[in-house]
């Protein structure tokens, strides 16, 4: 059993990042995540087991995002700034029970994995993800062609993905090797 504060501190950022998969507006996301936490508090769900809590929070946030998107479509008839085909794909993928890295890993692990990348991959992740630079800006900063930036970014992400899935596998092995009984 954890306290509300612990759970909040642990999951607020991951939930925020998760919601960003579906919704662009960060202020909206903050509101949606807040509502999820408020309900979570009211229902006293934090007394349940950690794994259930986690699944509950991620599912609730995803549902809140989907409801928001529906609402947006009805009320605003807003112009899509993301390709709706690709966005729909994301929604379906996670709606079908697929877990995202953000849900599977803790942030610490993700940052560690970034740290263990080769220097040039680490650099491009830091520039794009931590400093928020666009590909074009990175190209200018590093004085390399924009197409090189794109390729490098893709490869850096693939390599990061690989490291993270290896890590997960590692834990799994460790558990298996615990002495029986």
């Amino acid at each position: 059993m954890s306290s509300f504060d612990d759970i909040f501190k642990k999951y607020h950022t991951p939930l925020f990042l998760y919601a960003r998969k579906f919704v662009d507006d960060e202020d909206v996301i903050l509101d949606l995540v807040q509502d999820v936490f408020a309900l979570f508090w009211e229902k006293k769900k934090f007394r349940f087991e950690e794994e259930h809590v986690k699944a509950y929070l991620f599912n609730s946030v995803r549902n809140a995002c989907l409801n928001f998107l529906k609402h947006e479509k009805v009320v605003r008839k807003h112009q899509e700034n993301r390709s709706s085909v690709l966005q729909e794909m994301d929604i379906q993928y996670y709606g079908s029970g697929e877990k995202s890295l953000i849900e599977k890993e803790n942030l610490e692990k993700i940052y560690q994995a970034i740290d263990s990348l080769s220097d040039i991959h680490k650099e491009i992740i830091e520039l794009s993800r931590f400093e928020g630079l666009k590909n074009k800006e990175i190209a200018e900063r590093l004085n390399i062609p924009i197409r090189t930036v794109e390729t490098r970014l893709f490869r850096a992400l693939s390599s990061l993905r690989e490291k993270l899935s290896k890590n997960t596998f590692h834990i799994f092995l460790n558990i298996c090797h615990l002495p029986a009984g």
């Binding site: 990042l17 998969k21 953000i102 993270l164």
Partner: peptide, 17 residues
């Protein structure tokens, strides 16, 4: 592949803190 790379991209942001 596309969804996995995008997922890695989404997970590696430091922006939410």
């Amino acid at each position: 592949l596309f969804l996995e790379v995008k997922d890695t991209w989404d997970a590696s942001s430091k922006n939410g803190a």
